Amino acid sequence: MRGMPIAVSGTEFTETDGVDGLIEMAGAARCDAVEFWYPKNAERDGLDATLRELDRAGLRVACVSTPSQLYGSGAADGVPLLHEAITLAARTGGNRVNTYFGHAPVADDQSAIAAYAEALAPVLDHAAAEEVVVVLENEFDAFGWDPAASDVSRRPVALAELFARVGSPWFGLNFDAANFLCAAVSPAGEALPLLLPWVRYAHVKDVRRAPAATPPDGWTRYTDDDRAYDTAPLGTGELDWPTIIETLATAGYDGYLTLEPHCARSILRSETARAADYLRDVLSIHAPSHR
């Protein structure tokens, strides 16, 4: 693997889709890796058959992503799901498993960090044995589940404290620049400089603050603390991708950049192709290993 390879995410598909669309999405992006959402992407055809489909298409698994969390009400289900995902990542050679923090009725960063670190410890024992890195994706209140803003991952300082407390090479950050912007955090100016030592994976999409009453056709609106954001074609939103890519490259990051456009299915293939082309242009200029 050289430089920062591009992958595409299976989060854009439902449980009934299988991986047909994901394979088409990867073809549009001209990439050979996918973020496999487990168990969602395997629900239609079963895990073994689904993995065979990806293999026949010449696609590797960049990361196994799960709707798991280790803090709050979902923690009991999150632990066994993460163990399954770690085993799957080791089987496929993906060596990354994506997870989420969770939420509670009140915000208490110190208690939340302590509880998360305790729940994570046995998971990381398994991850270390399989040589798989668990990456925590930073989030915002995308679905209205966390009105108290209790999710530590939305605050870079608290997130850095969590990584420092855990102190494991098998635990890192899935840096999602757009999610930080939606949490009212500057991705390039505030979050990345502080969290750079722990970045082990990255999601790539674009968003813009929403001035209009309705989102543009084909794009998705999210609301956080009464602030509205619309997803947008990569390079047209508020994310400073040239600076982000240059910062990652200078730090020696050589992991995947995974596209997740969050747009309507009718434009997903064309927008994925366009986003991949834009990202390659940025990489060619701002990532020394791509020059």
Rank of each mutant, 00 (worst) to 15 (best):
R2Y: 09
P5I: 08
E12D: 04
F13T: 09
E24V: 10
E24D: 14
M25W: 04
D32V: 03
V34K: 11
E35Y: 02
Y38P: 02
R44T: 02
L54H: 06
D55E: 15
R56W: 00
L59N: 06
V61W: 01
T66S: 04
Q69S: 12
L82H: 07
H83F: 01
I86R: 01
L88P: 11
R91F: 04
R91P: 05
T92W: 02
N95L: 02
R96M: 10
T99Y: 06
Y100A: 07
G102L: 12
G102P: 12
H103D: 08
P105S: 09
V106S: 12
D109A: 15
D109I: 04
A114E: 14
A117P: 11
A128K: 00
A129M: 00
A129V: 00
E130M: 02
E130W: 00
V132I: 01
L136M: 15
E139Y: 02
A149M: 03
S150N: 12
S153D: 13
S153L: 11
R154G: 12
R155A: 02
V157M: 10
F175T: 08
N179G: 07
N179P: 14
F180L: 13
C182L: 04
G189Q: 10
A191S: 10
A191R: 05
A202E: 07
K205L: 05
D206R: 08
D206C: 08
R208I: 12
P211D: 11
T214E: 14
P216C: 11
D217C: 02
T223R: 06
D224E: 05
D225T: 03
D226E: 14
L234V: 01
E238M: 09
I245M: 07
T250I: 10
E260Q: 15
Y278Q: 14
L279Y: 12
R280D: 13
D281S: 15
R291K: 10
R291W: 08
